[in-house]
């Protein structure tokens, strides 16, 4: 039961595609009962296919628990995929993740406080990938390179020998970005890099990321639940619901012409600047179903306003949603063809 049968792009040949994910499924086992047997599976990512182009920013949006972070972790092999393929420049990487790949694909974590080892100095934290991946041995070399990296994220020499607790949240996030940049990566997976920061610092970090992207030709996979952040940084966007994509497209296509009912509801829930404009807010009923036992057919159908209004069609509750091309890069996964 695959979600998408046909390959839309011939990704293996396309030089613009730097990272390609095909039919990715990542399930977490639920242990329980006597002897902690596997009694069920959380279908965190359930058949996801996308391409990350060179030098672009792909925003991955969705509510909590829909599997955004799991996609990032699966690409970096922190959790292993159940099925599906991941290609980096046409080479399959999900079954053979080497240290050379770690140089090229790096990650920035969500919580800047917890993702720096509190017992280590900054120079050691940023120097660790240099030591392991670049096999630098001399302390002076490492210090020099770490200083360069700190300067690219606009920090200073005196920060080298400090401990993480001596920094503010924004500075910590800069340090984490510097660590990710240490080995000249090509892809950085940003796992909600701004959600732990306040708004002014968010803007600084986002602008820093944009500058760095231009400077080092990075491709960014930007995982977030913050729609305004995504609108600010991303070129393309993919909306997720319960481990599956519901709509992908460029920022303009998705934000000005949201087609999938879920995307519409999500976008209408955004806070607006002008309180006088009356938005037709779509309010969804019910809660997100459990990913352990997702609804049959389209996972969104029990809450879908279209499904509930226009007579409960059998297609929604039984068939897997079809991928519909709306022109340009814009795709939705829906059974309501109208």
């Amino acid at each position: 039961m695959t979600l998408i049968e046909e390959k839309t792009e011939d990704s293996d040949r396309d030089p613009e595609v730097i990272l390609s994910v095909r039919n990715l499924r990542t399930y977490y086992p639920v242990l329980g009962g006597l002897f902690r047997r596997k009694i069920a599976e959380v279908k965190a990512v359930d058949g996801v296919t996308f391409n990350l182009y060179n030098k672009e920013t792909l925003g991955l949006v969705g509510e909590s628990g829909c599997g955004k972070t799991t996609i990032g972790n699966t690409i970096l092999n922190l959790v292993s995929a159940k099925s599906g393929e991941i290609y980096y420049k046409g080479v399959r990487i999900d079954n053979n993740f080497t240290n050379d790949l770690r140089k090229k694909i790096q990650m920035v974590f969500q919580d800047p406080d917890a993702s720096l080892n509190p017992r280590w100095k900054i120079v050691n934290i940023i120097g660790e990938p240099l030591r392991i991946l670049e096999r630098m041995k001399k302390t002076r070399e490492i210090r020099k390179r770490v200083l360069e990296l700190l300067e690219t994220v606009s920090m200073k020499m005196e920060h080298l020998d400090r401990y993480p607790h001596e920094f503010s949240g924004g500075q910590k996030q800069r340090i984490i970005i510097a660590r990710a940049l240490a080995c000249n990566p090509e892809i950085i997976i940003l796992d909600e890099p701004t959600s732990a920061l306040d708004v002014s610092v968010q803007a600084q970090i986002l602008n820093l990321l944009k500058d760095l992207q231009r400077k080092f030709n990075l491709s960014l996979l930007f995982i977030t639940h913050d729609l305004s952040v995504v609108q600010h940084v991303a070129d393309r966007i993919a909306v997720m619901y319960l481990g599956k994509f519901v709509e992908t497209g460029t920022i303009e296509e998705v934000f000005y012409n949201p087609t999938h009912p879920y995307t519409r509801a999500l976008l209408s829930a955004r806070p607006t600047f002008d309180p006088t404009t009356k938005t037709s807010r779509v309010i969804l009923e019910g809660d997100v179903p459990s990913p352990i036992n997702p609804p049959s057919g389209c996972p969104f159908h029990p809450r879908c306003p279209k499904y509930l209004e226009q007579g409960k069609s059998m297609a929604c509750s039984e068939d897997v949603p079809k991928k519909i091309h709306l022109g340009g890069e814009h795709y939705i996964w829906c059974n309501q063809t109208k």
Binding site: N73, L76, L78, N99, R102, Q106, M107, F109, Q110, D111, A114, S115, L116, N117, P118, E128, P129, I132, L133, I176, R179, A182
Partner: peptide, 16 residues
């Protein structure tokens, strides 16, 4: 904890 995950991402082995 995330810093252990981060160490994995930077390629640190289990013993390290």
């Amino acid at each position: 904890l995330p810093y252990v995950q981060a160490a994995k991402v930077t390629g640190a082995g289990n013993w390290r």
